[in-house]
C-alpha cells in the first residue's frame, strides 16, 4: 500500500506544498491586541480554511502536468470560497461592533476582512511555489522555495502604520468652562460639571501632524480616526460606560492645518504608551488616499 503510494511521482511535491501551505497559514495567524481571531474556535476555522487553501495550491501544477486541464478550473471555485471568508468576517465583526464601547468602524472591519481573504491567497501561493519547485528541482528545491515564500508572506503580513504619515505629540487637555480643547484644537461642549472634572482628571490628549498632503487627506477620514480611538481603547482601556455620552473619546480636525486633536479617556493614564499605540495604528487600506499622484492638484495641495 505504502509502496504504491510512494510510486506516485507527485506524492512528495504534493506533501511538501501542502505542509508549507499550512505552515504559512499558521505563521500568519496571530492573536494580538485586536483580540481576533479568538482562541480556539476562530483559530480552528481559519486553520481549516488554510488547509483547504494549501491543498488547492499544491494540486494545481501536478494536475496540469497530468494533462488534467479541467482540474485547474477548481481554482476559480477556491476564489469564490475565499470571497465568502471575507463576507463571513465582515458579518461577524459588524455584529460585534454594535456592542463595543468604542466601535471599530466600517473601514477598519473591511480592512480586517480583506486581510483574511488575502492570507488564504498567500497560502495558495506558498504551496503552489513549493510544489512547483519540488517537481522541478527535487525535495530540497521545494524546501528552499517554500522558505522563501514564507519570508515573502511574512513581509506582506503587516501593513503601514500611522507613524509613517503623521507625527504624534502629547498635548494638554484643557477644560475651559464648557469648552474642551486638546492643545489649540476645539473638541466639544461639555455642560456637566461632573463630567468636566472627570475629563480634567482622566483625559489625555495628542496632536497628530500630517507629514504631507497625502497624509492630510488620509488622516482626515472618519474611518481612520475611529480606528485610532478603537486601538487606544482596546489597549489602554477606557474610562466610560454605556449611557455616558459626555465621556466619549473624540478626534477632531483643525481645518486650517489638517492636524488632528485626539482626546482620549484611558483607564490607565499613560501618555508614553498612548503615543506608541497611536504611532502603530494601521493605515486602513480602504482609506489611504494619494491626491499627490494626480498631476492636476500637485501644486495646489
Amino acid at each position: 500500500m505504502l509502496k504504491e503510494l510512494f510510486a506516485n511521482e507527485f506524492v512528495v511535491p504534493l506533501t511538501i506544498g501542502f505542509v508549507f501551505g499550512i505552515m504559512c497559514r499558521i505563521h500568519l495567524l496571530r492573536t494580538d491586541y485586536r483580540q481576533y481571531p479568538t482562541y480556539p474556535h476562530g483559530k480552528i476555522i481559519h486553520v481549516s480554511l488554510g488547509v483547504i487553501a494549501s491543498a488547492l495550491g499544491a494540486l494545481a501544477v501536478p494536475a496540469l502536468l497530468k494533462e488534467n486541464y479541467t482540474a485547474v478550473t477548481f481554482l476559480t471555485v477556491a476564489a469564490q470560497q475565499f470571497r465568502d471568508v471575507r463576507n463571513m468576517e465582515r458579518t461577524t465583526l459588524t455584529e460585534i461592533d454594535k456592542q463595543e464601547l468604542v466601535p471599530r468602524g466600517g473601514p477598519y472591519i473591511e480592512g480586517i476582512a480583506m486581510v483574511f481573504e488575502g492570507r488564504n491567497y498567500m497560502v495558495i501561493f506558498t504551496s503552489l511555489i513549493a510544489t512547483t519547485a519540488t517537481i522541478l528541482f527535487n525535495w530540497w528545491g521545494g524546501m528552499i522555495a517554500g522558505v522563501i515564500a514564507l519570508v515573502i508572506a511574512r513581509k506582506l503580513r503587516s501593513g503601514k502604520t500611522l507613524s509613517l504619515i503623521a507625527d504624534t505629540s502629547p498635548a494638554e487637555v484643557r477644560v475651559d468652562g464648557k469648552d474642551l480643547y486638546v492643545g489649540d484644537i476645539y473638541i466639544m461642549n461639555v455642560g456637566l460639571e461632573d463630567a468636566q472634572n472627570i475629563i480634567r482628571e482622566h483625559g489625555i490628549g495628542f496632536i497628530l501632524t500630517p507629514k504631507d498632503a497625502n497624509a492630510k487627506v488620509t488622516i482626515a477620514h472618519p474611518g481612520q480616526r475611529q480606528a485610532i480611538l478603537h486601538d487606544v481603547a482596546t489597549q489602554l482601556g477606557i474610562y466610560t460606560d454605556t449611557g455616558e455620552p459626555s465621556l466619549t473619546p473624540l478626534v477632531k480636525r483643525d481645518l486650517q492645518s489638517g492636524r488632528l486633536g485626539v482626546f482620549l479617556l484611558p483607564q490607565e493614564k499613560d501618555v508614553e504608551r498612548g503615543k506608541a499605540i497611536i504611532d502603530s495604528v494601521p493605515i486602513l487600506e480602504s482609506v489611504f488616499r494619494m491626491p499627490q499622484k494626480t498631476k492636476l492638484v500637485k501644486k495646489e495641495l
Binding site: G177, K178, N189, V190, G191, L192, E193, D194, A195, T242, G243, P245, S246, T248
Partner: peptide
Amino acid sequence: MQQTAFTLEKILDAMVHE
C-alpha cells in the same frame, strides 16, 4: 441646575451641553 442635568443625563443616556 447641574444636579438636574446630571440626573437627566443618566436617565436619558444623552449628553448635557451648555
